[in-house]
Simulated assay, not measured.
Amino acid sequence: MKAPRVLGPLTFGAGSAAAITVLGAAYFARRVVVPTTTRREDLLIRQVFAGEDGSLRIELPATPLTRAPGRYSLWFGNGKGHACVGDVVDEDTSGGTVTRLVERVDAGDLPAARAGIWSGYAFSKPEQLGLPFEEVNIKVDNGVAPAWKFPPTTDGPVVSTWAIHAHGMGGKRAGALRGVPVASRLGLTSLVVSFRNDGEAPPSNDSRYSLGQNEWLDLEAAIQFAVDNGAQRLVLFGWSLGGSMALRAANLSAHSSRIIGLVLVAPVLDWAVTLTSNGSASGLPEAVARVGLKMLGSKAGCWVTGLEQPLDLSALDWIARAGDLKTPALILHGIEDSSTPVEVSERLAGLRPDLVQLVRFEVPGHSLEWNADTEKWESSVSRFLSSLPVD
Rank of each mutant, 00 (worst) to 15 (best):
A107Y: 02
V33Q: 02
P152K: 06
D92C: 12
E369C: 04
W216F: 07
R383C: 00
A19W: 02
V381I: 01
T66I: 05
D391H: 01
C84N: 01
N214G: 05
A26Y: 01
Q357C: 05
M1D: 11
E91W: 00
W162D: 08
D312G: 11
A25H: 02
D354S: 02
E336H: 15
R46V: 07
H255V: 12
P69H: 11
S256D: 10
V390I: 06
L44Q: 15
E375L: 03
A50C: 06
L74G: 00
W148M: 09
H82D: 11
E336G: 08
V304F: 08
A300Y: 09
P389K: 07
K80L: 14
R46D: 15
S94V: 14
F76A: 06
E336L: 15
A115V: 02
L43V: 10
E343Y: 13
G243M: 00
V235Q: 08
P203V: 12
G283V: 05
R5H: 12
H255F: 15
G51D: 13
S244N: 05
L351A: 14
L211F: 13
L241T: 01
G242K: 07
K125P: 00
H165D: 12
L60A: 07
V390H: 11
C302E: 14
I223C: 05
N205C: 10
G168S: 07
Q128N: 08
L7P: 06
E135S: 06
A226D: 04
G279W: 06
R5V: 12
A115M: 05
S277C: 12
S382V: 02
L358S: 05
F123H: 10
S277R: 14
L23I: 09
V390T: 13
L262S: 12
P157V: 02
N278T: 10
A107R: 06
V136W: 09
K80W: 09
